[in-house]
Computed example of a mutant assay.
Amino acid sequence: MPQPNHSTYDVVIIGGAIFGSSVAWWLTQMAGFDGKVLVVERDPTYEYAATSHTNSCIRQQFSSAINVKVSQFGAEFIKNFRRFMGDDPEVPHLALQSFGYLYLADTPEFAQTLQQNQQIQVALGAGTQHMTAAEVAAAYPFYQLDDIIAANHNRVDEGYFDGGTMFDWFKRTARRNGVEYLHDEVTAMTKAADGTSVTHVTLKSGATVACGTVVNASGPRAAATAGMAGITLPVEPRKRYTFVFDAAKPLDRDLPLTIDPSGVHFRTEGKYYMAGCPPREDPAVAYDDFAFDHSLWEDKVWPAIATRVPQFDQVKVINEWVGHYDYNTLDQNAIVGPHSVVENFLCLNGFSGHGLQQAPALGRGIAEWIAYGAYRTLDLSPYAYRRIEENQSLIEKAVI
């Protein structure tokens, strides 16, 4: 394995996928920060990284204000990607396909929750509409809605985008700006005698480097990384399945990202359609467990799709994969910022499926914390680690 260029770094980022690379790039944008940054990535192909298995969606339909604000910045970043990247003509424009999420409620309780969520979102500037079943039918006559009471829908800055391109440019521009990427793996950490900081990280190659700050951006492996510093994180890998399918009778308009009461969600994907869901049982799995349950399509996904959209009675799966959520078992929300005791160990973990859309804002926030010791543009303190210690949930009612 190649060796690190230096024996000491101001920042060591563990994990070089979307969050590690977002932090790395944002650090190069922080005025006055000129520290040495090392990104340690165990698999530079990113074959099994959660980033590589993402569906690249973005929404503002959350129930907590901080999640709405974070995604609003994400939409701004996507729509102005080249400008954020310094107006480099090589940087492509990113399109945000705003067909929106459509949450369907089949119980009065969930309909009320959707209405409450919509009021929070609209107060923050989102374009979410609370709709009756009749209003949904008028806009999208292909749905079967006999069991549906109400829905929420937002077609403003909500849909999907090319997350792979965003990741690629975070990574390549960070490198171009002087960030060092190293194919290696952190295997141990050394703390100061008083336990308040990590002083060194040890690599699988045998090298040991001193560090000023450590950023845990290791996705579903976050708990193992934190454990090296004696820190407990309630984050575990959980499987999520994706299917891309062709329809013999395609719809005459875009299919919103439809969150069905069955737990299956599906949307337009170019000239095809994409569907996803959790498994029947949803336990933690091994970090390297990507075994595919092929019965899930026939037994769960296709029946839900064909029931909700009768026009999908003849479809064919053309691609499928399984990836991992870095699932926060406490409240399915991100854990962001410094540990309460090991103060130079920064968490960026536990996104539970909505990480990619949050990467621009949360990467910026961690970079601000490193450079200035505080969040400057968006207060991310609701995501702080302290709530884990105190068992105080950051409630999010809109988790897929």
Rank of each mutant, 00 (worst) to 15 (best):
L362V: 13
V23I: 14
Y103T: 10
I259W: 06
D289V: 12
Q72H: 05
E298N: 11
A284D: 09
A275N: 01
Q144S: 13
P382G: 11
F245K: 12
V179L: 00
E390V: 07
F73T: 07
R175I: 14
F351Q: 13
A222Y: 08
P220E: 00
K191Y: 07
Q121V: 10
K249A: 14
C277P: 13
A95W: 01
Q29W: 13
E281V: 03
S295V: 10
L182F: 12
G323D: 09
A229H: 08
Y325A: 14
G227E: 10
E180I: 02
K69G: 04
V122H: 07
N177R: 15
P89A: 02
T128M: 03
Y327A: 11
G127C: 11
M166R: 02
H294P: 00
G227P: 02
N117L: 11
I14Q: 07
V341E: 15
Y9L: 02
A17Q: 05
A134P: 08
K300A: 11
F345Y: 15
D10C: 09
F351S: 01
Y140W: 14
I58K: 08
G373V: 08
V285K: 08
C347N: 15
L104N: 10
L378N: 10
L378W: 07
T377S: 04
T199F: 01
H53Q: 04
K69D: 02
I13Q: 11
A374I: 03
A275E: 12
S205R: 12
F110T: 07
E41H: 02
F290E: 00
E185N: 08
L251D: 00
N319G: 02
S340M: 05
A17V: 10
T54S: 15
E281L: 00
K171N: 02
D282A: 13
D326W: 15
R83I: 02
H130C: 10
H265F: 15
L348V: 04
G163S: 09
V342Q: 06
V70M: 05
I370W: 06
Q118D: 05
S197I: 04
C347P: 03
A286G: 15
G16R: 06
Q332T: 14
V209G: 09
G159Y: 13
P141V: 08
D289R: 12
F292L: 09
G212R: 03
L145W: 00
G206R: 07
D246E: 15
F142L: 05
R82C: 06
V301Y: 04
F161A: 04
I149F: 11
L38M: 08
R42A: 14
V317Q: 13
I388A: 14
G206D: 00
D313I: 02
A224K: 05
P108R: 00
A217G: 02
A374E: 01
Q115H: 13
N349R: 04
G363M: 06
T45V: 05
F266Q: 03
W26K: 12
L182W: 13
F167K: 01
L330Q: 14
V336A: 09
T54K: 07
W169T: 09
I18F: 12
G86A: 06
N328T: 04
W26T: 06
V235A: 14
F62Q: 01
K316Q: 11
H265C: 09
A133W: 07
K249Y: 03
G74Y: 08
N216G: 14
L145R: 01
N216E: 07
L362F: 11
V214P: 00
A150S: 15
H200E: 10
A17K: 09
Y9E: 05
V399G: 00
W321M: 06
S340A: 14
M131E: 04
A398C: 04
L182I: 11
D260Q: 03
P310D: 03
